[in-house]
């Protein structure tokens, strides 16, 4: 027998999605629009994309770009944030630069990225890196700064050297906050890749959308691309949230509903 929480977790969202599709379908029919596609047309568009082989290729291209830019942001951002959080002088030196660079939309870097790298893979990778890097750095830095002094004192009391203290106390204590930053950064990376692909390259889901409109006003493919982007974004978020359920970080998410 399904429990109440099963119903709420699975049936309720599915029901809402079904309702939305019905409403969309009715709206298209009632307004007799010829431009905006119906759900059935969009489904046919998805099949067409799959048959042409671009569905998987473009999805793969977008995911690969996110993987590249985001991995770089992760590998550089977490250590940078840990260092900034641990060494106050470093934070004083770099915080103004970081706080100024952070509100610049990654897309504003586009002209420079194209100037430096031309229309190539490197341009979207750079934008994704920039979009993900700052949230990761700031979350890691704040995570380290908010480690309770008691944990540090206990670590020192047991005779830990500074590297050991960082690895065995500071990092695990900051990890819940770092994971939140990583999840937010992944969402940003996924937003940025679509926008970057509309300008800088000729493949990927962002390119699919802009190309479908420009070459023949194929709004069925535009909407199909949008739905794909949304669905993949959802999957990425669910995967990132999974990490927050690991038992060694669960304590940092107490009082939050799943």
């Amino acid at each position: 027998m399904p429990t109440r929480s099963d119903v709420e977790r699975v049936l309720l969202p599915l029901g809402t999605a079904a309702l939305a599709i019905v409403a969309w379908s009715l709206a298209v029919r009632l307004t007799h629009t010829t431009v905006f596609p119906s759900p059935l047309k969009v489904a046919a568009g998805l099949r067409e994309l799959a048959a042409r082989g671009v569905l998987w290729r473009y999805t793969g291209d977008s995911l690969r770009r996110v993987a590249t830019g985001y991995s770089l942001a992760l590998v550089l951002g977490v250590p940078a944030g840990l260092a900034l959080g641990w060494i106050p002088a470093l934070a004083s030196a770099f915080n103004p630069v970081i706080q100024m660079a952070r509100p610049i939309s990654p897309l504003a870097w586009m002209p420079l990225a194209i100037l430096w790298f031309g229309v190539s893979e490197a341009a979207p990778d750079l934008l994704i890196f920039l979009g993900a890097f700052f949230p990761i750095v700031v979350a890691s830095m704040n995570g380290v700064r908010s480690v309770p002094a008691m944990y540090l004192q206990a670590g020192r009391n047991f005779g830990l050297s500074t590297p050991r203290l960082l690895a065995r106390v500071v990092f695990p204590a900051a990890l819940p906050q770092i994971l939140v930053g990583l999840r937010i950064a992944l969402g940003i990376a996924w937003l940025v890749v679509v926008a970057a692909e509309m300008i800088a390259v000729d493949s990927g889901l962002g390119y699919l959308i802009i190309d479908s409109r420009n070459a023949g006003k194929r709004y069925d493919l535009v909407v199909a691309g949008m739905l794909l982007i949304g669905a993949i974004g959802l999957v990425l978020d669910v995967v990132a949230r999974r990490l927050e359920r690991l038992r060694s970080v669960r304590w940092g998410f107490q009082g939050e509903t799943a």
């Binding site: 008691m150 944990y151 004192q153 206990a154 009391n157 695990p172 204590a173 990890l175 304590w251 940092g252």
Partner: peptide, 11 residues
């Protein structure tokens, strides 16, 4: 040094 119980490592 033993603190109140909040000193254990939650991770």
């Amino acid at each position: 040094f033993v603190f109140q119980e909040r000193g254990v490592f939650p991770w």
